[in-house]
Design a protein around this nucleic acid. Structure first.
Lengths: 187, 187
DNA sequence: CGCACCATGTAATGCGTTACATGATTTT
DNA sequence: AAAATCATGTAACGCATTACATGGTGCG
């Protein structure tokens, strides 16, 4: 599926692998992410499949840039994917919940530490969404007004991230209180 | 990490691969899941590493059962993992959000269909958590009262699943309304 | 002086899914 | 009669991470 994240961004403009990483980890970080190494290998495969083409832009004092452009084939594939509704929920994984599920033998203090550390992390994440990420989108619309409708969808995904983090924080607070009150002290 | 889900369940009692699949997909389905094939190969690897042992229980008319038991080494590894707080948030992926992010060229109707199909799926998921999953936990506690404190943590993870689905539904409703009002009609 | 940013890629390894292969028992 | 449950496993493939390999520019 990284394929469609790449084709999606390339449908707006030609970009390098490095730039694609920036776009992915900045604007879709809350529901998609990828490492540079994976992006490079996926782009290579997409080029073999005829979904994108690349040309080298020579640079001085830096490695040459390889700029990828989406092809007609790639665009058609993207649009066909977009047109299909998803018939399943994406199953989620969460390391914290897995650890918490089995955490009782670790004892009350360890459980509370586990939850409190995550609380700090999720608080920071929420702050990032409400500031930087939101700002990025507004910035894009200001420079390219024709993207206004696209931006409504981007904002919807961002809103999801904010709701998710707010929910996570609420749950953590609830759960911390429950553990404080109902789990027996360590000996 | 499937490793710790397996060791976690085996720390309560010896189980077969098949039974482990049932436990994982029933009680931790909301934050962890695995296919049988992966469970079998992981158990095999855990046995090679000395984390579990297995013995065959012959059966008639069915394949023999291979029952896995956690070892001292496995229990020590599990407890050491439990004692460590998690210093990172689990990065999430969600196919719906990815598709929505790029969905504008698909047009208003396709976007609404996409969102409405997911609404139905998430509604069903929430109903399952509030009924079956919750019931499973109560059932376990009724039969094994000594698990009462463990069950508080299981209920906390279930509560997360319920909050997650409720949040998802709220966001879908919000987003459907926004698309209805603010995205231009298809031509 | 050190860190972040720019910029590319390959190799090894690990995690996870799908398909293959088999087949009786129990429930609807 | 069909579907779900019980029960095990391997092989092929695909997706993703970590480590390896290189090195200049720009900022504080």
């Amino acid at each position: 599926m990284l394929k469609y994240a790449l084709l999606g961004f390339l449908s707006y403009q030609p970009l390098t692998g490095y730039e694609l990483e920036g776009r992915i980890n900045a604007s879709t970080g809350n529901f998609w992410h990828a490492r540079l190494s994976q992006i490079y290998t996926t782009l290579k495969k997409l080029e073999e499949e005829g979904m994108v083409t690349s040309r080298i832009e020579p640079q001085e004092g830096r490695p040459d840039r390889r700029v990828y452009t989406i092809t007609e084939t790639g665009l058609a594939d993207l649009h066909q994917w977009l047109a299909q509704p998803l018939m399943e929920i994406t199953p989620q994984k969460d390391d914290l919940l897995l650890k918490l599920f089995f955490a009782r033998p670790a004892g009350k203090n360890a459980i509370l530490t586990l939850l409190r550390v995550q609380r700090g992390l999720h608080e920071a994440q929420l702050r990032q969404y409400t500031t930087e990420t939101r700002h990025n989108i507004h910035h894009a619309v200001a420079n390219y007004p024709q993207l206004a409708e696209d931006a409504l969808l981007w904002l919807a995904t961002l809103r999801f991230g904010e709701l998710y983090e707010a929910m996570y924080l609420q749950w953590l607070d609830e759960t911390i209180a429950m553990v404080e009150q109902q789990i027996a002290d360590d000996v």
